[in-house]
Amino acid sequence: MIVAGIDLGSATGKAVVMKNGEIAGAAVLSSTTNPHNTAELVLNQAIEKAGLSSINQIDNIISTGYGRLNISYAEDNLSEISCHAKGAHWMVPSIRTVIDVGGQDCKVISVSPKGTVLEFKMNDRCAAGTGRFFEAMARALCCGLDGISAMENQGDDPCPISNQCSVFAESEVVTLVNDGIKLEDIIAGINMSVASRLTSMSRRVGIVDEVALTGGCSKNLGLAAALEKKIKTKIVHLPYDPQIAGALGASLFAAERLELRLQNEKEAVNQ
């Protein structure tokens, strides 16, 4: 059985192809202004990596993410909340809390032992604490996203930075730069401010071990370290790219639905 999940996010498109319950191919691409194109490009890459030649070889596809309604060949769509929970739980079944930091959203998801969503909290309608925020900060500091992430750049004395608004935080950072504050302390301050925002969201849901960090921003090592300090618990290392958790979850749902359909068909024949 070959299935796929496509996660069309605000910043990147992700696709996962699974063969008989194992990840056969995965791809991550920057989103284009055309969601159809992004989906096609990223899915084709995943198909190629899985050693397949065509979308026709895939038995079922589920879509998720902001562009989830734009994929006509998907059987159905599900929210990225359900998909991230499912994907992260599949990677490490002992996970009970998923913190997903994407391009324009961040969310904390409480996960059941079965991998379903018990409760979730999402950021209000503001880009603070998301990938867009880090992009703006990297621009202001001319250090790139890698510069924000690198552990050697996490200063010992993080500057307090407003976690309210990306635009104002950017001006705040510009002021700090002009005041001659050490770059490392500003970077540590930026990561700390996002971590503290995620912590208060987590407190509304309640943090239950073990905790996973997913989404594009999970690659920010500085953020992960700051978050561990704030929530006072270790973040589990995921055995696969945490950015594909949503697409992986979607492909797992695609497999479940297909199995159910086949089972129902079999029962109908037997009757």
Binding site: S79, E80, I81, S82, T116, V117, L118, L260
Partner: peptide, 14 residues
């Protein structure tokens, strides 16, 4: 996402 959470606290066919 809320509806998916409400539906059998996950997905009905699980």
């Amino acid at each position: 996402a809320f509806i998916e959470t409400l539906e059998g606290k996950g997905i009905k066919y699980e």
